[in-house]
């Protein structure tokens, strides 16, 4: 216990926490991307995958809570470090020094905040399925039949319908761009903070950070863009659009639900 508290008390320890939670979150981002890329397959593919995840509630919620905790740790530590860092220079320079530093590195808190805001929206959008924020209607009513005959939530339709809304696609793209910036610095820094670096490996680590952050950006951007341009799932979307109830019609029902509690 004492070594954990002493870990958190030191600025270096907090950097380890940032790097370690960042590494895990990065791994999640990669895994999540692989899952989502299934949208380029048939509707059954991603729906089966989603159904599989939902059929293991313990695992699903374990991962969800774990991720939430990681995000919380990452954000809280970041805020604490930023406050301490700000306090370390009470009087600013007339000409703030900027040379030598990559510009990404100076805006980690800003890009992080955008990403956090995006995560909240993304969870409300596709996980909590809050109607009224997606610009289309109520995703909860979308249903698909799996090859095995089971009924399940039609995730494919939800994604396709969701990204046909221009401002949703735009917001996702912006968020991905910001993530790209964040990872561009963060990925390499994780190695630095955890001490995995020397003069030989540093250029390789930086290359890795560049390649990985670009790949993640392209991968994630491809989904909304190809849907918005009607390259993916346009026909399927039309067959499903009628299942959507306009958000406005749903709301009273939701309200009634609450009252029923």
């Amino acid at each position: 216990m004492s070594s954990i508290s002493s870990l958190y008390k030191s600025s270096l320890g907090q950097k380890y926490v940032m790097a370690a939670s960042g590494t895990l979150l990065f791994l999640f981002v990669v895994g999540h991307l692989v899952g989502n890329l299934q949208v380029f397959g048939s509707p059954e593919l991603i729906n089966t995958y989603a159904h599989f995840l939902k059929s293991k509630p313990l695992l699903l919620w374990g991962v969800r809570l774990g991720l939430l905790a990681l995000v919380a740790l990452h954000v809280i530590t970041a805020v604490q470090l930023s406050l301490a860092n700000k306090a370390a220079r009470p009087v600013e320079y007339a000409k703030p020094p900027t040379y030598g530093s990559a510009w990404q590195s100076r805006y980690m808190l800003g890009t992080g905040s955008v990403i956090a805001a995006f995560v909240v929206y993304h969870l409300a959008h596709f996980t909590a399925l809050l109607p009224g924020i997606n610009g289309v209607g109520d995703f909860r009513t979308l249903e698909a039949t799996l090859p095995g005959g089971e009924k399940t939530h039609d995730v494919y339709a939800m994604i396709v319908l969701g990204f046909q809304v221009w401002w949703v696609t735009l917001f996702y793209l912006v968020a991905q761009a910001v993530l790209f910036i964040h990872l561009g610095h963060g990925l390499a820094s994780m190695f630095q903070s955890l001490g995995f670096r020397n003069h030989i490996w540093w250029p390789r680590i930086q290359l890795f950070a560049k390649v990985a952050s670009i790949a993640i950006f392209i991968g994630y951007a491809l989904i909304p863009v190809s849907i918005y341009l009607r390259v993916v799932g346009a026909d399927y979307a039309e067959t499903k659009r009628f299942e959507l109830k306009p958000a406005a019609l749903v709301e009273p029902a939701a309200a009634t639900g609450k009252e029923a509690k």
Partner: peptide, 21 residues
Amino acid sequence: VDQMDAEGFGGCTVTGSCEAV
């Protein structure tokens, strides 16, 4: 490192400015 923290210096965010100057 503990003394460095106690003195009120900030933490490293790997911007590289230090190396540059």
